[in-house]
Write a protein that binds this DNA or RNA. Structure first.
Lengths: 139, 139
DNA sequence: TAATTACTCCATCAATTAAATAGACTATAT
DNA sequence: ATATAGTCTATTTAATTGATGGAGTAATTA
């Protein structure tokens, strides 16, 4: 399951994708439209900025906006930044790999199975982008 | 990520799959072979029994054993019993559905995307069985 | 340059879930 | 009877998640 934090992040990015090209959007605006606790949202957006998904502008007329066109950011990227590993086991994670203590990885049937799941999941998540998050009633 | 509990459960079932047909296996035996805290394992096996994956026998010569041939139990079944939903969002879960509060489900791009992920994941997890968990150095 | 706006950063806190442990109880086999 | 081995309930600890408060910094505008 995606954490609430990750869900909030994705929803916020979907909203920013809708607004792409029309300048900075206030945190408060995003929070209200997407029903996200504002202080919580703040930290999420900051995190996304630190990973070069978002850019921000301070002062009057400021706010957050996408650094690149929505199509350029995959859902997989976002989930990894906010929520961490996509794989179901640390020992098959591509970006957050951790050695499996108790089993010989080469012979582990569970590991092999979960690697197949990972590939199937990534095939989708790396192709889908922020464009796919835009409210469909607007498209 | 699968919880430790789910991982333990799958590893235990893999071991019982190896031993299928040769009578009951002691909890203590499974725990030792698979490096699982014994009391924790107890509760996991009990849960699997209550969901008709395992059968048990008390007293001397007792232990746990698979109720059906390993091929008959899918990994998806096991994950759902021990770990809950497989989908990444409650509102796209087939077995643990929960309504999404803040969005119109019909028009939600995030939901649509996660439904695709779910289908891709299930396609693998429903086909894989306990047979696929057996230590490959034995097969 | 003063005032306002809006993001940034740090610290904390409550609630929930995950992981592990303890001990009493029940059923079975010999 | 007795030893064996699963069953059940309760508790405890640690980690994570979700949320909040407030001081600080940067940029704009008048």
């Amino acid at each position: 399951m995606l954490s609430k934090k990750t869900q909030y992040g994705l929803k916020a990015l979907g909203y920013l994708a809708e607004k792409y090209g029309s300048g900075p959007v206030l945190i408060a605006d995003i929070a209200e439209q997407k029903c996200i606790p504002i202080k919580f949202l703040e930290s999420i957006l900051l995190q996304l900025k630190q990973h070069d998904i978002l850019e921000s502008k301070k002062g009057k007329g400021g706010g957050y906006y996408l650094m690149q066109p929505p199509k350029k950011t995959s859902i997989a990227q976002v989930i990894r930044i906010i929520g961490g590993p996509i794989a179901l086991l640390p020992c098959v994670s591509l970006n957050f790999y951790e050695k499996c203590g108790d089993c010989n990885e080469e012979n582990c049937g569970l590991r092999k199975t979960m690697a197949v799941v990972r590939d199937a999941t990534l095939k989708v998540l790396e192709k889908k982008t922020l464009c796919d998050l835009v409210d469909l009633s607007l498209a």
